[in-house]
Simulated assay, not measured.
Amino acid sequence: MERNSKIYVAGHRGLVGSAIVRNLKEKGCSNIIGRTHEELDLKDQKSVRNFFREEKPEYVFLAAAKVGGINANNIYPADFIYENLEIQNNVIKAAFDYKVKKLLFLGSSCIYPKMCPQPIKEKYLLSGYLEATNEAYALAKISGLKMCQFFKRQYGADFISCMPTNLYGPKDNFDLNSSHVMPALIRKFHEAKVNNKEFVEVWGTGTPLREFLHVDDMADGCVFLMGNYDGEEHVNIGTGKEITIRELAETIKEIVGFTGELKFNKDKPDGTPRKLLDVSKLKELGWTYKVQLKDGIKSTYHWFKENYL
């Protein structure tokens, strides 16, 4: 991938896609294209094929997806499986038919089995039952990952996949009805501080362990893989470090400056009890993360106050 290569970032305005665009620009790439949902509906096969035929991108980062937290996944499973299958099927097939040189598909660590051995190695995919609260999303993303594998196996297409851990950072979704745990807690603690609330409710018991990767690190890892990996198996992207939800909540509480109490609502679901990626494969390839969690939360909270309120 050269600096003047034509690069299409699908989902360029989202959390993941915008970080990839930032990283590419920092590395001197100047021929980056993107389309808003209004300009190109990736669920529309004809429109997607027309786009690829006319624009002829050389490299594709497939970061577009319908995403959400536990609540959204529980309420809208049909939407999550159908829309994600539409998006990735259309883009991957068009990329193949219109001779894209290389494509990177982004999965998500939540598509590993619920009770995976820890830390989670790439080979554990499809080795057990999925987490029920995000089964629909997981099945769609597994299909996309496998689609890339099979196009590589059958046709020799240079389509690769990566598996990021839990992401956070600028342009995250802070809507309490559809967000993930990190942005949800940032918003809850901020609003509790502003409104002088006595406590903040946190879903679940606080005991699940989670790994968090700043989205700028994720983007750097993706661009690294685009230039340094062509294997059939997907690659985990993470930090290899974990923290309990309670510890996360306490850290965010401190950064935001909320002085009230924490209350854990044990009637709400915890999700997967532990989810830590084995990132040794990526380390062996020569990449590791840079942003420490506390620093990343501070910068994300600053972005939230400057851009979301």
Rank of each mutant, 00 (worst) to 15 (best):
F212R: 05
Q292I: 10
K275R: 14
M1N: 06
N74R: 06
G128C: 07
T244G: 12
T239E: 06
P119T: 08
P208A: 11
V256L: 14
G206Q: 03
V200P: 00
I111H: 07
G238E: 03
G68H: 01
V9N: 03
G240C: 13
S127L: 05
I81P: 02
L42C: 15
N265C: 05
G240S: 13
V16M: 03
K114I: 03
G240R: 09
D97Q: 12
N23S: 06
V48C: 05
G107C: 01
E58W: 03
E250P: 05
P170C: 15
F151Q: 13
K152E: 04
E232N: 12
N196E: 14
L248I: 11
Y82E: 12
W287L: 09
E39S: 11
L103D: 11
D41H: 11
G128H: 06
D97Y: 09
K56Y: 02
S5M: 09
K114F: 05
P164K: 08
F150P: 02
S127W: 06
I186N: 00
L276Q: 07
G240H: 10
Y76P: 02
S109G: 11
D175S: 12
N166V: 06
S47Q: 14
D216W: 07
P164W: 04
D41A: 12
K253R: 15
R35A: 09
I237R: 03
R274W: 11
E233L: 13
I81Q: 08
L104W: 06
P119R: 11
A78N: 13
K281V: 07
Y168A: 08
L262C: 04
I70T: 10
L62M: 13
E83Q: 13
K266M: 11
G286F: 06
G11L: 02
M147E: 15
Y301E: 08
G296T: 08
M163V: 13
N195M: 05
E135C: 13
E198T: 12
N177P: 01
V100E: 07
E2H: 15
N236H: 04
Y308G: 04
R22N: 14
E233D: 14
F212K: 04
N228K: 05
L309K: 14
K263A: 10
S47V: 02
G257E: 11
E26C: 12
E83D: 14
G227W: 10
K171D: 09
Q118W: 04
S108E: 03
V48T: 11
N265S: 10
N4H: 14
M163W: 07
K294A: 07
Y76M: 13
K93M: 14
G107L: 00
C116K: 02
A136G: 02
D172S: 11
G204D: 02
K241F: 07
I32M: 12
K263F: 09
G238F: 00
V223F: 03
R187S: 12
P117N: 08
K275G: 11
A72D: 12
A19N: 06
Y129G: 04
I32G: 10
I33T: 05
F258T: 04
C222N: 06
F174T: 00
L85Q: 11
T239A: 01
A94G: 10
K241V: 08
A19Y: 00
E58V: 04
G11S: 13
G128I: 01
D270R: 05
K281P: 05
A136S: 13
D278G: 08
P57G: 02
K294G: 09
V202D: 01
